[in-house]
Amino acid sequence: MMSTPGLLSAFRRTALVLALVAGGMPAFAQESTSQSTDQSADRSATQIASNQPVGDVVLIPNRVIYPGQTIELAALKQVTLIAGKHKPDGVVTRAEELDGKVAKRTLLPGRYIPSTAIREAWLVEQGASVQVFFIAGGLTISATAVTLQPGAAGDLVKVRNIDSGKILSGTVMADGTIQVSAS
């Protein structure tokens, strides 16, 4: 059966008029989202339309974060996964786990953030002058040293004693000093 161009055009005009009069899909989506603002502003339109339960919530970058950059909450957005979809293992999902951390590799917008792709911010930088302490009972020995590698709190780093030139290994403390032990 062949259709004539005039008949097809008239059918399209009628369908368009009916869609405009009835309000079409945008009005339905708008109505659904306005009803859901009280419940959850972060729910996706797909979940609202299908009345599915909300899935897992994850944080993803909203811009490119390059290696060495500090991750700020402004660079992240919270998204809700479609119900039935689960986040992969080893993915960071909470803001507390990301705020102030540093990217070890490039983090792309819209992608999960693996826990292996972030690290703590360095407390001591490579080449910085630091105080080194040796504490044994009541004895405390302090010296000035230069770090040979960067480190965060709790990291084991190598330092060179400025006076003797000897290389020591010590733990970075929360205040940025290095504590060495007898070896």
Rank of each mutant, 00 (worst) to 15 (best):
M2Y: 10
S3A: 12
P5A: 14
G6L: 13
L8C: 02
S9W: 08
S9D: 11
V17P: 00
L18H: 10
L18I: 13
L18Y: 11
A19C: 13
L20M: 10
M25W: 12
M25K: 09
A27T: 13
F28M: 03
S32Y: 00
T33I: 12
S36D: 11
Q39L: 13
A41M: 07
A41Y: 05
D42Y: 09
S44M: 12
S44K: 11
A45L: 15
I48W: 05
P53A: 09
P53H: 01
P53M: 04
P53W: 00
V54I: 15
V54Q: 11
G55F: 13
V58E: 01
L59H: 05
L59F: 09
N62W: 02
N62H: 02
N62V: 09
R63W: 01
R63Q: 09
V64L: 08
I65G: 04
I65T: 06
Y66R: 13
P67K: 03
G68P: 05
T70S: 10
T70K: 06
I71Y: 02
I71L: 08
A75N: 10
K77D: 04
K87A: 13
V91C: 01
V92K: 01
E97M: 04
E97Y: 00
G100P: 07
K101I: 05
T106W: 01
T106E: 11
L107T: 11
P109T: 06
P109M: 05
R111D: 07
R111I: 02
R111K: 12
Y112P: 08
I113E: 00
P114R: 08
P114I: 07
S115Q: 14
T116I: 09
T116Q: 12
I118D: 05
I118H: 03
I118R: 02
R119A: 12
R119I: 03
A121C: 05
W122G: 02
L123R: 05
Q126T: 15
G127P: 07
A128N: 07
L139H: 03
T144D: 05
L148V: 12
P150M: 08
A153V: 10
A153N: 12
K158Q: 13
V159L: 10
R160E: 15
N161Y: 03
I162L: 10
L168P: 11
G170E: 06
V172R: 09
G176I: 03
I178P: 01
V180L: 02
V180I: 15
S181A: 15
A182Q: 09
A182E: 06
S183F: 12
